[in-house]
Structures are given as structure tokens and as C-alpha cells.
Design a protein around this nucleic acid. Structure first.
Lengths: 349, 349
DNA sequence: GGTAAGAGCTAAAGCGCTTGAGTGGCAGGA
DNA sequence: TCCTGCCACTCAAGCGCTTTAGCTCTTACC
């Protein structure tokens, strides 16, 4: 049995300098593609570094003003709310693809709420831990952009509203209003006049955008039996709201759910009440996932590429870190995947 | 409009020292509860630090040998496999609860596969980024424990096998074998003799443990129509395998799925073939989530507290970082939540 | 032939913190 | 009285890197 072998020592630039017979500064220049060394020396240094398996110490780098080579990501949800959800993992996975390429780390934290999240940002900033952050779930009257401004932390707001201007903050957004308009358009064409939108958390910015867009579309078409109901995204509330609206005197003929979980719970609830989908009521989920193909009938859903969304956000953040200007970029409008849960409204008998 | 306000400057120990009228070293002693300063001075320094909103720079700390105050977590799954899954988010959320208390950061990364993951560990180690790591999805003949040993990186294997001994590696495990035995016991009592276990990825250690346990149980009872089939955990394979086994001449009367996603897909597939659950075939999901209550009938499932699992793992890791010995701790056996998908086998007509 | 301009390199300071080696003052013992 | 020992504190080095200033050669040019 080998005696407790001491952990291998990490090679440093000094080791490289010694092996290559040059000064540490020369090594630094060589390895960072900075002028000041000949190509010959640069090559030699590079070879030695590789051979030694050298990697820059992020701590040292950060200390000498280069930044922490890390970005932060906070998910502000209480633990028990973190249910069945493919969006965030996919988003993160897209983010990583871009970050990994640049050897940027992702510091992840789940927080209780937005206030807690702000505390995390402050701490990260004070501790010199991150160079920038990715902000999700933008709220109405969100304190986070202000805070990031104050701290001078670059950030990308994912799913933010494009009009809000904060220096140093980029925004990556999806055109919820446009998607909602298209959706209503489609349902209208199928003859639907009574539509209920079972929305998500009321203080999320995109929830409000969707609600507003729905109201606008309804107004334009003179539909007055159209409404939105906010929920907490859970299957329980999805089912409860579904029951409530279907038991009303003039039940809707179409239901739009703000996520896949509620949509699935909703069709189950509808079935219990004797409503058949799509014969009696059409259902659309605003978010596509394997879930939508796990129930009968398969759910029509708005599908977006969450991985790509993450990639885009991360790309914007790296651009910001490179000193680029804050930008607002729009990702493609989610596409409606028509499956079996939407149909023309049944002609009155 | 305020002209591009410069980001606030982070206060350093030097600032505190100046304000408190002592040397930097005294500040360091005071703030780290080290002897060498009087209580009076300590108090004053602490007050000044608080007032300035000082937080130690992790970079500087790490550089002076204190460690990075960060632990790493790698998820080795290709992006598209990251589907509907509540386990990891819950696990991470539990981990965070413990880490946040100690102001430890969590560096998160998704990798393609285990080889890739090993590369991440190497890089993290060389870059001085993490003090320890949490390893999930242990494999049969897993290269990661060896690597961590070699690097001298403390780690906790989540769901590992308890017999494997690696100095510096703790293990947190669930008794899969015991759970499987109990499960088979219950099904046997209900009269089930033909049982198929639709397992997960074949090279995961716990998949093998479950398969072995099932075989052992079957052997003990003399059941020879019991088998395990491995899959990739996806709804697609879950459904495919279900179809295949149900179309066999003597179809099983009970199906055990290694996760909730496959179980749900499985009942749908069964229904299509005209099998009714639980009348014709009983179904149990090894993993409980909202999913199990989204289908009819509600699925009986093995439920474990993933958040608590995460907490335990993180606690072990912090103990390790504090210089404690490597330990092997067992979390409670998952509990069977009996819902509507399991029933006594139908008496032969 | 003298000088000026680079090219290619080194020396040294500094980032914010820890830490081991002092240092001065004071109390107590011989 | 002097010495010892301790307390409370300061000094300075060092962690691994970047970066500015400077230094020494070549080479080019009038």
C-alpha cells in the first residue's frame, strides 16, 4: 500500500521559466500572446508549459486584475418549487457550451427569492468571485438590474424586456407578444372565441407580457370572453384553475397553459370533468418537452430551443466581458408544434 | 443622465487597517478569530469591517493557500439527454443549503461523458478553482475516484458503492439492494411472478446493484420469469421496451421502472396495447415526482428525499474539507408510496 | 562612425490576503 | 536592578500571476 502520497504539486510559471531558461515575464508574454518575445521563445515556452501540464491559477489571475474567469447564475426559487422542469437544465447546458470554450466557470446558486438573490450578487461581487452574471426570471419592477449597475457587474438578462436600458446589461428576449398573437390567431381561425390563458407567476415580466398581448389580441378581435389567470406554475394550481374555468357556465373552448406541467395536469383535470381534448376543449402548452408526448392526446406546444437560448445568452455575456457594448438580442419566436390537443371548435348542434 | 459611474471599489483589508488604526496583520488576526489581538481591537476591527461592507477576496485567500472556498459539481450528460428531471435540481438545491451556510460556492459544469468530466476535474485542480468535488452517477469501474486520489482532491461520491475505499473520498449511498428486495417482496405478496425491471443506463453502478438485487431475490424465490432490461432512461426507450415485453407470449404482470419518466411513458405504451394498469399489469416507478400524479392511474413510486440527499452529501464534503476522515454514510431507504398503479395479480380465469 | 530606433528580454512592483519572525512595553520573579 | 516571559501588535515575505519600466543588444541610416 503506498503511503499517503502527497498530492501532486501544480506547476507554476516559475517552473516553466526555469525549464525554458527565460524570465517569468517572458513566460507570461509568451503564454498570453503578447508582444515582447520572439516566435522561437514563444514556441519553446508553450511547449514546456504543455509538457508540464500548466494551467494558469485563476486565483492569481483574478488577483492581478484579470477577473475571476467565472460567471454567476442564480435560480431564485424555493427548493420545493424546483419540480419537473427541463428548461433550466437545458438553458444551463447551452450556457456551458459557450463558457467551456473560453474556460469560464459557472458559479451556480439557488436562492429563496429575489432579495436573497441580490444578496448573492453583492457577496459575489465583494468576494471577487464572478466577472458577470446571467439573470433569469426578470420581474416587473425588478431590483436586480439596478443593483448590477451599482456594482458595475456586467450581466445578461434572460427573457428581459427590451425597452429597459441599463448600461452594462444586455438583454436576450423572446417575442412573447408576437407568439401570443400568432397563437390566438391560430385558435381564432379554428373558431375558438372563448379562450382562457392559464398563466404563470404574476410578477414575472414575461407573464405580464403574455397577458397584455392576449388582452390586446382579444380586444382587436372583439372577443370579450378571453381571460388570463395567474398561477404558481405547479401542476396542482394548473389542475385547480382548469377545473374552475371548465365548470363555469360558458366554459372556454381553448386553454393556453404557460408551461407544460400545468398543461398536462390540466388535461387530466379536464378529462375527470368529462371534457374530451380536443373535441370539447383545445389545449396548448407554452413550453415543449417530453411531457407533452407522455399524455394522450399528445399536446400541441410552443417549442423553443432552450439550449440555443442559453448559448445566445452566454455569448452575449462573453461579449460584454470582452468590453463590448450592451446589446439587446431577440431569439427566434417559439414555434407551434401542432399535435393532437388542438382542433377546430365543435359546431354548435 | 449620470455619466458612466465607475463601479464602486471593493474595500480591502488595508482600508480597514487604516480606519481602525492598526496593521493589516492585526486585521487579519481579528477577522479570522486568531489569537494575537485584544478583544477590544478585535471588536473595533470587526465593526469597521462590517461598516465598510468588507468581504474577503476569494482570489487573495486562495492565493495565500486557504483554498478556493468552492466545490465543484459535474453532470456528465449530453445536452439533449437533460430532459424532464427533478432529481438533479433537488439534489443541487439541498447541496446549496449546506454550502451557502459556509459561504462556499458551487462551480457547476455539464460535460459530455466521464472522460470529459475527468478533464474538468484536472482543469479545476490545475486552475486552483475548487477545494473538493461532488461526484454523481458512479459507474462500474469508474475512473473518477482514482483521478481524485491522484490529484489529492477531496470528494464525495453520491450514490456510490460502499465497499470501494479511496482515501479522501467519502461515499453517500442509498441501499438499492434493500429497496429492491422490499419491492419484490411486496409484488410477490400480491401474487406477481412475472416481473420485468426496466432499468437505467447499464454502466451506472446503481443500475447494476438493482439488477443484481432483483436477480438474487428472484433466485431465492425460485422465480425464473424475472428479468432486467437496461435503457437510456428516456421516455422513448421506456415505451419501446414496455411494448416489447408486453407483446411477448407470457407478458409480465408487474413492471419496475428505474425512473419516473420511463414509467409514465410505459403506462401510455401499455394502454395502447390494450393493457390496463393495474388490472393487467402493475407499475412501480423508482423515483417519485409530480409526474407520477399527472397520469391516470397515479403511479406507485419509490420516493426518496433528494434535497436531503444533497444536504447529506454536502455535509460530508464540508467535513472532509475541514480535515475530517473519509466516511461512508447511508441515507434512508426510499419509501414505497402506494398509489393506484399496483394491485394484486388478476386471478387466472 | 555615431546615433536612434526597435526587438527581445529582465527586474521589480503590485494585486489582497496569510503568516512566521520580529519588537516594544509591561508584569513578575530572582 | 536586571532578566525573563508574555501580550499585543507590526514587518515583511510570499502565494502566482500581470505589467510597467528599463536594459542590452542589433540593425539602419545619415
Amino acid at each position: 500500500m503506498p503511503a499517503k502520497r502527497p498530492a501532486a504539486r501544480r506547476p507554476t510559471m516559475k517552473d516553466i521559466a526555469r525549464r525554458a531558461g527565460v524570465s517569468e515575464s517572458a513566460v507570461s508574454f509568451a503564454l498570453n500572446d503578447r508582444p515582447g518575445v520572439s516566435e522561437i521563445t514563444r514556441d519553446r515556452v508553450r511547449r514546456v508549459a504543455e509538457q508540464l501540464g500548466w494551467r494558469p491559477s485563476t486565483a492569481a489571475r483574478a488577483l492581478s486584475g484579470e477577473g475571476a474567469a467565472t460567471v454567476g447564475f442564480v435560480l431564485a426559487r424555493p427548493a420545493h418549487t424546483l419540480g419537473v422542469d427541463s428548461f433550466f437544465l437545458q438553458l444551463v447546458s447551452g450556457i456551458q457550451e459557450v463558457l467551456a470554450e473560453r474556460h469560464l466557470g459557472l458559479l451556480f446558486q439557488v436562492a429563496q427569492d429575489v432579495a436573497d438573490e441580490c444578496g448573492v450578487y453583492r457577496r459575489w461581487w465583494a468576494e471577487h468571485r464572478v466577472d458577470g452574471v446571467l439573470v433569469v426570471d426578470p420581474r416587473i419592477d425588478d431590483p436586480r438590474p439596478r443593483l448590477l449597475d451599482e456594482l458595475g457587474l456586467p450581466g445578461v438578462v434572460i427573457g428581459g424586456v427590451p425597452d429597459e436600458r441599463h448600461p452594462g446589461l444586455s438583454t436576450v428576449w423572446a417575442d412573447d407578444a408576437g407568439a401570443m398573437a400568432a397563437l390566438v390567431d391560430g385558435l381564432h381561425a379554428l373558431g375558438h372565441r372563448r379562450i382562457v390563458h392559464i398563466a404563470g407567476l404574476p410578477d414575472l415580466a414575461h407573464t405580464e407580457r403574455r397577458i397584455r398581448a392576449l388582452r390586446a389580441e382579444a380586444g382587436r378581435r372583439g372577443l370579450d370572453e378571453v381571460e388570463s389567470v395567474t398561477t404558481d406554475y405547479s401542476d396542482a394550481e394548473g389542475a385547480a384553475v382548469t377545473r374552475r374555468v371548465l365548470e363555469a357556465p360558458a366554459p372556454p373552448t381553448a386553454l393556453i397553459y404557460d408551461n407544460d406541467v400545468m398543461a398536462v395536469a390540466g388535461v387530466a383535470a379536464a378529462a375527470e370533468l368529462g371534457f374530451s381534448v380536443p373535441a370539447d376543449v383545445s389545449v396548448v402548452a407554452w413550453e415543449d418537452s417530453a411531457l407533452c408526448r407522455m399524455v394522450k392526446p399528445w399536446l400541441s406546444a410552443l417549442s423553443r430551443d432552450s439550449v440555443e437560448f442559453g448559448r445566445t445568452a452566454a455569448t452575449e455575456l462573453t461579449a460584454l466581458l470582452d468590453g463590448g457594448p450592451a446589446r439587446t438580442v431577440r431569439v427566434p419566436v417559439p414555434r407551434l408544434i401542432e399535435r393532437d390537443s388542438t382542433a377546430a371548435v365543435r359546431p354548435p348542434v
